[in-house]
């Protein structure tokens, strides 16, 4: 696409999208948001970039094969689910680690896994579709 505004703007917007996606991912714990919507927003950033600069450039910008990102995300989500076996609780029960004001949990790990899985899956689909056109 030969639009000067888009190709200049896309660089900044992609960065902004990624930052915002992280914000949504972390905010998702107690408010609307979460891994799924975060992954969508992050992927949307790179999709926009691929419109502006082409799929090859977008693939280079992602650096890793999006399919691998998706699969690693799924692996992370499964590991988060398996972790509750250590505490002999039901599968996918959340485990918590409270460090002063900071509350960490396997739920967050699961959410990050979902984020990566969605991010990878969407980019795989969109890049593949754009390449066939």
């Amino acid at each position: 696409m030969n639009s000067l505004i888009l190709s200049v703007g896309a660089r900044f917007l992609t960065a902004l999208f990624l930052l915002f996606s992280l914000f949504v991912l972390l905010r998702g714990h107690n408010s609307p948001g979460g891994g799924f919507i975060g992954g969508l927003i992050g992927a949307a950033g790179f999709v926009l970039y691929s419109f502006a600069a082409g799929v090859d450039a977008a693939r280079r910008a992602v650096r890793v094969d999006p399919r691998a990102i998706g699969v690693w995300g799924m692996a992370l989500a499964i590991i988060a689910g398996l972790a509750s076996a250590l505490a002999s609780l039901d599968p996918f029960t959340g485990l918590w680690l409270i460090l002063a004001d900071l509350a960490l949990s396997t739920v967050l790990v699961f959410d990050i896994g979902v984020y990566l899985a969605v991010f990878g899956a969407i980019l795989t689909l969109v890049f593949a579709l754009e390449e066939t056109l």
């Binding site: 399919r67 699969v71 799924m74 692996a75 499964i78 689910g81 398996l82 599968p91």
Partner: peptide
């Protein structure tokens, strides 16, 4: 249910 998905991840990698 979980084992096939773990296997799927491994097989893909």
């Amino acid at each position: 249910i979980m084992i096939p998905f773990v296997t799927a991840v491994l097989a893909f990698l």
